[in-house]
Simulated scan of single mutants.
Amino acid sequence: MPAPILHLGATVLCSHAGQAQPLAPFPRVLVSGQPVVTLASPYAIAGCALTGSPNPPCATGQWLTGALRVLAGGTPVATQAGSSTCIPTGTPMLPLVAQVRVLAT
């Protein structure tokens, strides 16, 4: 199923409303003027609200699945329909807003 490709300016949150930003977007491919994010790019998470429990808050995140047919630099691009995980909690990242003009399968 086609889904929007994630990019540097996309709004991605951890499951506890922490802001996630890609650390290494792929600068040679742009969508809506922003570099795309591939599965190889880790995310840094800031402001995770999981602080009142004995579990540590989300610190980093990683996309596990993305596009099957669209690659950037030989690596699949991350899509809004892909699966992800936050470390150390194991909860998913939530892509809320991304560009809608370029879809990938």
Results as ranks from 00 to 15, higher is better:
A81I: 00
T51F: 10
T75E: 09
L68M: 13
G52H: 12
P57F: 04
R69F: 08
P35S: 04
A40H: 12
T38S: 04
Q62K: 15
G66L: 05
T60W: 03
T60Q: 13
A67K: 04
P76C: 13
T75I: 15
T65L: 04
C58E: 12
G66S: 11
G66H: 08
V37T: 01
Y43D: 07
Q80G: 13
G52Y: 07
V37M: 01
A78M: 00
G61M: 03
N55L: 15
G73P: 08
G73Q: 11
T38H: 03
P57Y: 09
P56K: 06
A67T: 12
L71A: 11
A67D: 09
A44R: 11
L64D: 13
P56F: 05
T38D: 12
Y43L: 07
P54N: 13
P54L: 05
T38I: 08
A81F: 03
V37Y: 02
A59N: 11
T75Q: 15
P76S: 07
I45F: 06
C58R: 14
A49C: 08
L68Q: 14
G73T: 05
L71Y: 13
A81T: 00
G73L: 10
L50K: 04
V36F: 01
T79K: 04
L39W: 12
Q62M: 09
T60E: 10
S53H: 09
A59K: 14
G61C: 08
T79F: 05
G74W: 11
L50A: 14
A46G: 01
A49Y: 08
A46P: 00
P57G: 10
W63T: 13
T60C: 06
T75F: 09
Y43W: 15
P42S: 02
S41D: 11
W63S: 07
G73A: 09
P54H: 10
Q62I: 11
A59C: 11
P54S: 13
L71N: 12
P54T: 03
P35H: 02
T51N: 07
S41I: 03
C58G: 15
L71D: 11
A81G: 12
T38P: 03
Y43N: 01
L71R: 15
V36D: 02
C58W: 11
